[in-house]
Structure formats: C-alpha cells, structure tokens
Design a protein around this nucleic acid. Structure first.
Lengths: 359, 359
DNA sequence: TATTAGCACTATCAGCTGATGAGTGCTAAT
DNA sequence: ATTAGCACTCATCAGCTGATAGTGCTAATA
C-alpha cells in the first residue's frame, strides 16, 4: 500500500500559452485515448505554432511533471497531476443538456420505487449506463437514520418479526428468537411504548439509551418495561450490514476505455470487499459538493489507475450516503462531473420528497 | 435463435473399446483444456493401443459425431453429443469428499441468516466460489408461496406499510398510498381479518379470491369488509419482481477455463436480463433431481457454448426455486454435478428447518 | 531572443519468411 | 485386425523487413 497522497496541487504558475498546450493535450487524450504528438496537436490547437515549438513546450511540461511518455517516439499522455490541474483550473461548472437532465429525472421518478433500496439500485444502474463506467453507491447508514416506526409481529411462539421504518423510507426486517411466548397484544403495547419513547431519534442514539436504561434499572419490576427494553435491545441490534450497490462492472471488461488499464482484475477483486468500498465512499472530510480522486490520489492501490468522482446525497437535514463512478483517469470530466453532481441532487430531492410524507 | 434441441441422445451402440477411447479423450480435454491427439492418448490410456489404432477409432468417433477438430492437425475435442454421452453413461453418482461436504454445510449454517434472501445470496456466492463458474439462483416465487402473516402499519395519513411474511420465511415490504386516513386500530382489525381468512393459502390463490369477492360483493355495505378487500387487493398486488441472484461473474472474465469461449460478452449481457434468466432456471419439466444442459441443448443462444447444471431446492412440500452454475462444456462434471446436487439438498434442508418453526 | 526547419534517432507495428512440431490419413506390412 | 512408416497439413513462433509516427538536437531565421 503506497503512502496516501492528499492532493496533487500545482504550486508553479504556468504561462497562458503553455496552459493552452497542456489543455490541448489533455483534451486530445480524453477524446482519442491515444498519446498525442506535436504534429497533430499543432494542427488542432490552431495557435499558429509549429510542431517544433510545441515540442519545446511539451518538453517543459514533461519536466514540470505534467506529461509523460510510454516510450520514446510515442507522443505524450497527461499525468495524474495534469488531470488535477485540468479539473481544478479548466473544468467549469458545466450545464448538462436538457435532454440528459430529463433522462436522469425520469429514471429516478419511475413508479414502484417507494422503497429507498429500489431507488438506489436503479439510480446506480442509471449512472453506470450513462457514464459507461462502474457506479458505486452506499446506502444510508441505518445507524444514523431517524426512527419513524418500529413494530413487532408475532410469527410463532419462538419467533418475532421486527419491522423498523426509518424517516427516509428504509424498511428493515429481522426475525428474532424469543424464549418466552409473547402475545401480539403484548407486543403491540411494547411497540407503541418504544415508538413513543424514541420517536424521531437516531437508531444509534436509541441503542445507547437502551443500554443505559438497562444498567440503571436492573431491578425493574414492571414487566412491560423490562420486556420492552429487552426486545428493543434485540431489535436495534440489527447488524449494520454495509450496503453498497455496484453496477456496470461489465463496462470494466468490455469498454474500450478500460482496455489499457493494467489491472481490471484488481478492481474487480476490490469490489468484492463491500465494506472497504463502503469506507472509501463515505470517508469524505468535505461535507458538500463533488469530490474527485485522480489516480494516485486514491487511497486504495487498485484504484490508482482510475479516477473516482463522487458526491453525497442527503435529505433536508442530513447527508445519507454517497454515489460515485470510477473510470479511467482520462474520462471526460466535462461530462462526468456534472452528471454525477446532477444525479446526486436528483437523488437527494427524490428522497427528501419521500420522507416529507411523514406526518 | 436456433431451433430448440431437446437432448442429444445416442442411438447407436458403441463397443467397449471405443467407449474407453472416447472417455479418455473427454477426460483428457476436461483436465488439460487442450485438444487431445492420438499419441498422448495412446500413452495415458494404457490399453496397449498404438497411436495409429487410436487414430482409426478417433476417425470412427468423428464420423459418429462425437469428436471434432478445430483445424487439421490439432488433435480432437469432444462435441456436445460426446459430453451428453459422458454425463449419461459414465458419470456415476459421485460422493463428495467429506471436506467439501463440511464446507458447504458450514457456509449455509452461518449466523445471522434468518432471512431467506441472505441464505440464498450466500449460497449462490459459495457455489460460484467452489466451482469457479458463474452461479445463478432463483428465489422462491412469491406468487406460489404460502401466506403466513400479513400486517398493515400506518406510517402517515397517506401511507401504509404492508408487511407480508411467507411460510418459508420471506418477508416482503411495500408502502401503499391511501386516500382515506385509516387508524392503526382499524388496520389491525383488517389484518387479523385477512390473516384469518387467508391463512395458509398461496398468494396467488389469495389474489384470485380477492378479485372474485370484489366482483361478487360490489354493493357491500360493511365498511370493514370493503376496506379489507380493498387493502388486501393492493397488498397482494406486490409486483412479482423476478429475483435472481448471480455471483461469480468475474470468473467469466478471468478464469482460464473461459478463455476459449467465444462470447463472454454475450453471457454477461444475458445476465442483465434477469427475467429471462429466471425463466431459464425455472422452466424445467422434470420435477426432481439435477438437470444438465450441454451446449446447444441450451435454449438461449448465448448459452450454447456452455453447460448449465442446475437443481431445484424445496421445503418439505414444494419446489421453491432453482440453483445452478453455468460453465464451459468441458467442466469437470464429476465434481460439478455432485457439488450442485449437494448444495441444493443442503439449501432445501436449511430452508425446511427454518419454516418448521411455524406453529 | 524566440521560433522554426531539418535531420538523425528510435520504438512500434504489420507483414512476410522459414523452421518447427503436433497431428492426421493412407498404405503396405505384419 | 493392428501397426509402422511416410507424406502432408496446418498453426505457431522467432526473426527480419519497411513504413510510420514520434522525439531531441542543432543550426538557421525573423
């Protein structure tokens, strides 16, 4: 595992003309996926510079660490540092075409998606389809979500189904075992007690409170309360399975774009470790907006040939999760960045709408 | 789409020696994944036959349609017909090693899997890992499963959560919208009515009955009954999303075994069409035991370079779904067949245990 | 002084070559 | 019926070729 690179900032100031050349090379490589040479660049740039001059500039840019060659006589390709420069300096907040906006909106508004899970899956698939890359989405952490409703349903003398609904519309089920046979009436009392007690609190907080009250009231004689606490404890112990949705893995193998990526295998393997991916998605210091990790800026070694573009989605109050794509470093940032950004916004909007149905 | 081939039966009787040669070629190709020639076969067979004799036999086998050559001078490989012969005549019910049996049993008995869904996913993953192929599993069709419990939970004045538990432990949630504000008490009455009315019937049947009673009792005045029927209708309209779990797709790309498969892409694309896969898995006439589709015996064109080995799993009463793997036609049948068989059995057993907790 | 034309150098790629080897089919001998 | 022997076929591979596209350097130029 290599040392973590925070961000490839550029200290030196680069003169206008050099910048234009650099930009030309980057965009050339993005569109063609081929190393760009001085001759062709001299034509496309239309700056009236001869290939020789361009070569000199290119040489400077190589010295500054913006360009590299796969071999002599191969034309140059941008380094991660160059992409960082490009993203920071050149890519401006771009408007998506109306058509694309429509497409994203429609896809998220499809019917039958009252469960957040379905919405997330279909959005993930959408983004993978639009970008032709791999799309990763982390589901809202059940931990921090707000309790809307908890209910116990007696299945048999030994089994109780816990249904837990969160503010943002996630529904979690769990079957718990009991030693004692509890009647449905009793369970109803317990659940209305818990609902009253813990309404609008985060699951995390609730769990804490339950544990505390267990310590406090060890010698509680009220049967209802005792059982409520006991059942509550089990119910809120719902293991916080790291939920990550991954779509578009086949793009990784069949897309032309990924062909010169030295280890698609490594990426695939990484995707198997959901909890690691979860961590990667959610470990963002910056609270808002879009985050971009280019090449070696990525913490994970197998991601270091790629760029990850991600953004948080939220309801009106809290950040819920992250949606992002991972693609080659020479992805079309001008498109990908606004697409991810817009998709995250629409996702937030849709989820907010849903949770606003609460009374 | 090519004409459906039912099964590649062999009419001719083949003499003992020829059979042994054929078997040798098949097993040779299975282990080496290379066309097998007369010389090497003469050695490994240890029948005291010279390469020339073997060549004559091979020539006969080619005429009978059991062998083919990719090009002259390449050695021969078995045809689909040969594999069919091999599977029918040669592969005997094989015992798995204790070690493998243990491994499968342990994997399915892991904790925290009281939901059938989790069990199915982890079993699918297990089988993909064991075989190094792609594993496909269809979940029990909610349609035909037996109602154990239905419950309505009032979320807001406009939203009701339906929780539906089936006999085999599947839990389905759906949020439905209402125009009228219904109290939780009322909902409880409705659900206990429905539970009583429809206990132990299949969802399919229940839906039918509800529709019938709507026709019959158009002018029903009983508010409870009317609402119960209306809510029931919505609840049992749960769209029967074809649930298929697919694991091990990466094997398709990286495994040596698949490398000479002309279209991994086609397979990947096919996997995207879950409902088609679902159909493929569940469309089996034969009720019991293991089913094997070799090469062109597969209905789906993109599967016709592969072999699919599948088996149904069930609870004590009914077939619930199918689990199977898809791999190259020269897979190691001696291993794969018993592994799939055993896994399906263990899966049935585990699910049966779970649903037996019902009172 | 910045730019450019010219030239030598170099890596890659497609296409060709001949050698090699694995495998077959046929025929004649056993 | 089996087998040894031989001619033949074909795929693969290493090595060579010329064409191409790129560079770096130097000297001439505006």
């Amino acid at each position: 595992m290599s040392k973590t690179v925070q961000r490839l900032e550029t200290k030196e100031s680069i003169d206008e003309r050099t910048q234009r050349v650099l930009r030309g090379i980057i965009e050339g490589y993005i569109t063609s996926n081929e190393p760009v040479g001085s001759r062709s660049l001299s034509k496309t740039l239309e700056m009236g510079l001869s290939p020789a001059t361009i070569r000199n500039i290119m040489s400077d840019l190589s010295d500054m660490g913006f360009l590299m060659q796969l071999h002599t006589s191969a034309g140059r390709i941008p380094t991660d540092k160059a992409y960082r420069f490009y993203v920071d300096q050149v890519v401006v907040a771009n408007q998506l075409t109306r058509k694309l906006q429509k497409r994203i909106q429609e896809a998220t508004q499809e019917g039958g998606m009252n469960q957040v899970e379905d919405l997330l899956i279909s959005t993930t698939r959408l983004l993978a389809g639009l970008t032709q890359f791999v799309c990763l989405t982390s589901s809202p952490r059940v931990e921090t979500s707000i309790l809307r409703r908890i209910e116990f349903i007696r299945l048999s003398s030994q089994q109780i189904l816990v249904v837990l609904v969160t503010r943002n519309g996630q529904v979690r089920n769990k079957i718990i075992a009991t030693t004692e046979d509890l009647s449905q009436d009793f369970l109803n009392t317990v659940s209305s007690f818990l609902n009253e007690q813990f309404h609008n609190r985060s699951l995390h907080k609730i769990r804490q409170q339950i544990l505390e009250s267990m310590v406090e009231d060890k010698e509680r004689y009220d049967r209802l309360l005792a059982q409520a606490v006991r059942l509550g404890k089990k119910a809120f112990e719902l293991e916080v399975a790291p939920e990550v949705y991954i779509e578009g893995q086949h793009n990784l193998i069949f897309s032309e774009r990924f062909k010169n990526l030295n280890s698609a295998r490594g990426l695939m393997d990484a995707f198997e470790h959901k909890s690691m991916i979860m961590h990667l998605l959610d470990s963002t210091v910056e609270a808002d907006g879009i985050q971009i990790y280019i090449g070696i800026e990525n913490e994970l070694e197998s991601f270091q040939d790629c760029t990850m573009v991600k953004a948080q989605y939220s309801d009106q109050n809290n950040i819920l999760g992250t949606i992002g794509v991972i693609g080659p470093t020479n992805m079309d940032y001008q498109i990908v960045i606004p697409v991810v950004d817009f998709t995250a916004r629409i996702l937030s909007q849709t989820i907010t709408q849903q949770s606003s149905f609460c009374d």
